[in-house]
C-alpha cells in the first residue's frame, strides 16, 4: 500500500530562523494525524510545504510515493482549510463550494448538485445563497471545509481551523470534522496547538519541537508512554519531583525505587522525575510507607479532586484522587504520598 504523504528530513529556514530542522513523518491512508507543538515550532510551515505554498530547502516530500516538490499547488489535489476565514467574499456559499469544480471545467448542474451535497454534509442545508459575510464564523469554516472536500482531494489539510471560533462552537465543530473525516475516510493532517483538540480528534498525534518530530503516536500512548520529557510535559499535566538515579536503571523517589523508561543518566545524578498527578497514591497521615505531605489547595473537579501538595523537603506537586477519597483533605491537612510502581521518565534537574 502506498503512503499518501511522506515527509523525509524536511528543512526550511527563514533567514536565521530554522522553521523545520529535518522533519520526518509518514501519514497512512485514511488516518487523521494532528501536528501538535508550541507556537513557532514549524507546524504551519510543514503544512504549507505539503500544500505547495512553500518549498523545502532540503529533504523530500512524497505523495503516493512520488516526489511532488516540483508540482505546483494547484496540481496537488489537496484540500485546505485555513486558520483565518478564507471564503471568497464575492461568491455565495454554494459558489464557494463549487469553485474547485468550476476551475476543473465541470458543468453547472454537476457543480450545483455537488455543492448541495457537501453543504448538507457539513450541516448547512439552505445556506447556498448566503454570502460569507452573512454567515457566522463557525458556518464559514463549515463552508470552507465543504469547499476543500468538494474536489475529492487526496489529502485534507487543516491549519488551526477552529482557533478563531468561540469555545462552544469549537467543540461541536471538532466532533463534526472528525465525523466527516471518518465518513469519507480521507487522509487528513490537522495542525493545532491545543493538545485537547489533538488528543480527542486524531488517530495519531505528532508532537513537534523546534522544527523536529519528537514523537508520533496514538493519543493514549502519547499520554501514557511519552518518548521524551518534552512530550511528557507538553501533553497533559506533569509533576517534576526530585529523585536520584541508582544502579540498575532505577530512580529513587520518596524512598521508592522506580524503573526508568527512556534515557537513563549516570548513576548518582540528581534528576527530576516526571510523574502525572494520577501516578501518586495519597494515603492517611499515619501510613508509615509513604512520604509525609501537606495539602495546600484542593480543587474539586467532579469525579476527581486535584490536590496541590508540598513535602517537608520542599517538593511541590499535584496529585489526583477520586473525590470520595478526598473528603477531609482540606488545605492544611496532613497526608502521605507514594508513587505507583510504573516506569517513569527522568529529566535534567531544572
Amino acid at each position: 500500500m502506498t503512503v499518501p504523504v511522506q515527509l523525509k528530513q524536511l528543512r526550511r529556514e527563514f533567514g536565521s530562523t530554522v522553521a523545520l530542522d529535518g522533519l520526518d513523518l509518514d501519514i497512512a491512508p485514511g488516518e487523521m494525524v494532528a501536528l501538535l507543538g508550541p507556537s513557532g515550532c514549524g507546524k504551519t510551515t510543514a503544512l504549507r510545504i505539503i500544500a505547495g505554498f512553500e518549498t523545502a530547502d532540503g529533504g523530500e516530500l512524497l505523495m503516493d510515493g512520488q516526489d511532488v516538490t516540483s508540482v505546483p499547488a494547484n496540481r496537488r489535489d489537496i484540500g485546505m482549510v485555513f486558520q483565518s476565514y478564507s471564503l471568497f467574499p464575492n461568491m455565495t456559499a454554494a459558489e464557494n463550494v463549487a469553485y474547485g469544480l468550476r476551475v476543473r471545467g465541470k458543468a453547472s448542474a454537476e457543480r450545483k448538485e455537488r455543492a448541495q451535497e457537501l453543504l448538507d454534509l457539513v450541516g448547512l442545508p439552505g445556506r447556498e445563497g448566503h454570502y460569507p459575510h452573512q454567515l457566522s464564523g463557525g458556518q464559514q469554516q463549515r463552508v470552507a471545509l465543504a469547499r476543500a472536500l468538494a474536489i475529492r482531494p487526496k489529502v485534507l489539510l487543516l491549519d488551526e481551523p477552529l482557533s478563531a471560533l468561540d469555545a462552544k462552537v469549537r467543540l461541536t465543530l471538532r466532533e463534526e470534522i472528525r465525523r466527516i473525516q471518518l465518513e469519507l475516510g480521507i487522509t487528513t493532517v490537522f495542525v493545532t496547538h491545543d493538545q485537547e483538540e489533538a488528543l480527542s480528534m486524531a488517530d495519531r498525534v505528532a508532537v513537534m519541537k523546534d522544527g523536529r518530530l519528537e514523537q508520533c503516536a496514538a493519543p493514549s500512548e502519547l499520554y501514557d508512554r511519552p518518548a521524551t520529557p518534552f512530550v511528557a510535559e507538553f501533553v497533559g499535566t506533569m509533576n517534576r519531583l526530585p529523585g536520584t538515579v541508582r544502579d540498575g536503571g532505577v530512580v529513587e523517589l520518596f524512598g521508592r525505587r522506580l524503573p526508568i523508561h527512556g534515557e537513563t543518566p549516570a548513576t548518582g545524578s540528581e534528576v527530576d522525575v516526571l510523574l502525572r498527578p494520577e501516578g501518586l497514591a495519597v494515603g492517611a497521615a499515619d501510613d508509615k510507607s509513604g512520604t509525609a505531605a501537606t495539602v495546600r489547595v484542593a480543587t474539586f473537579l467532579g469525579a476527581t479532586t486535584r490536590l496541590h501538595l508540598s513535602t517537608e523537603s520542599g517538593a511541590v506537586f499535584k496529585a489526583d484522587l477520586p473525590s470520595w477519597e478526598a473528603t477531609g483533605l482540606a488545605p492544611g491537612a496532613r497526608c502521605t504520598v507514594t508513587p505507583h510502581d510504573n516506569p517513569v521518565l527522568v529529566a535534567e534537574r531544572s
Partner: peptide, 11 residues
C-alpha cells in the same frame, strides 16, 4: 489566504 485557497482548489 484568498489566493492560496484558490490555488489549492486547482485555479
Amino acid at each position: 489566504t484568498l489566493v492560496e485557497a484558490a490555488r489549492s482548489l486547482g485555479a
